[in-house]
């Protein structure tokens, strides 16, 4: 079985006070640490364990600059067989649709049975690339997978729907599945594991090799423009609600209502 797993390098901002850079449109990158998108980590584990169980080959693909190669190395250390790096200055600023387009061009040229992506990326949180890529490749897809099995040339996927329910769907291969966190327990990647794959060659595909004219790429790849980034309004420390118990409770309900808690 040939599995393609799409991954992304994202800044780890969980415990970090983020700042906007001078352009006002991007994160202040200085002092940020980067790593694999959490969802993609589950997708890689799914790919590796499917190949372990069924044989075949798994290939990790990313779109990004030279520094993004590290997530491909990490995928290799986890057990992915090959990696593919879509890298060209012309790809800068590609939106989700643009990324899907690049991925489609790279993937369509190869044999594949299953394409895996993370459900969303923790930075832009679009959750779009998987579905768009499936549409561009003309294959069936399912989002938010919490369980994935492959049997008799079909993928059987459990995925999240509304109201805490899950639905089981069966997809003919080739298909695309975007996975939710918790679908498996991703294996740990040790520093030594990364060192072991440091010398493995990773082919780089640029705009030309994907059949794109670099001059036109921008217009094609970046339709959604980031106008500005700004801090959501939030005070420091809790706003203490005062008054009688009843007043406090009514004020609390008001706040909960504003924030979608009711």
């Amino acid at each position: 079985m040939e599995i393609i797993v799409c991954v992304k390098r994202v800044p780890d901002v969980a415990e970090v006070e983020v700042e906007v850079d001078r352009s006002g449109r991007a994160l202040e990158r200085q002092d940020l640490a980067y790593g694999i998108n959490e969802w993609d980590n589950f997708a890689i584990e799914a790919a590796v364990s499917l190949v372990e169980a069924h044989g075949g080959r798994s290939t990790a693909v990313t779109v990004g600059g030279p520094e993004d190669e590290e997530v491909l190395r990490r995928a290799l250390a986890m057990g992915v067989n090959e990696a593919l790096h879509l890298c060209d200055p012309a790809f800068a600023g590609a939106d989700a649709h643009g990324v899907a387009l690049l991925l489609q061009r790279a993937i369509a040229a190869r044999p594949f049975d299953l394409v895996l992506t993370g459900a969303i990326s923790s930075d832009q949180r679009n959750g779009q690339v998987g579905g768009m890529l499936a549409a561009l490749l003309g294959i069936p897809q399912v989002a938010l997978a919490t369980e994935l099995k492959v049997e008799n040339g079909r993928a059987v996927v459990r995925h999240e729907v509304e109201g805490g329910l899950e639905r089981v769907v069966e997809l003919d291969l080739p298909a695309l599945v975007s996975v939710q966190t918790g679908i498996n327990e991703p294996r740990y990647v040790s520093v030594r594991g990364i060192r072991k794959v440091a010398d493995q060659a990773i082919p780089v595909l640029d705009a030309a090799s994907l059949g794109l004219d670099a001059a036109q790429a921008q217009a094609l790849l970046a339709q959604v423009r980031i106008e500005e980034l700004f801090l959501p309004q939030r005070g420091k420390g809790a706003e203490m609600l005062e008054g009688s118990d009843e007043e406090k409770v009514l004020k609390l309900i008001e706040r909960l209502r504003e924030r979608g808690g009711l």
Binding site: V13, L27, R125, R225, E227, F230, L231, P232
Partner: peptide, 16 residues
């Protein structure tokens, strides 16, 4: 307006 970076920032994006 959308929430990005784990809710730490908001992004104003535009599309034609």
């Amino acid at each position: 307006v959308r929430s990005v970076y784990g809710g730490k920032l908001n992004a104003r994006v535009s599309v034609a």
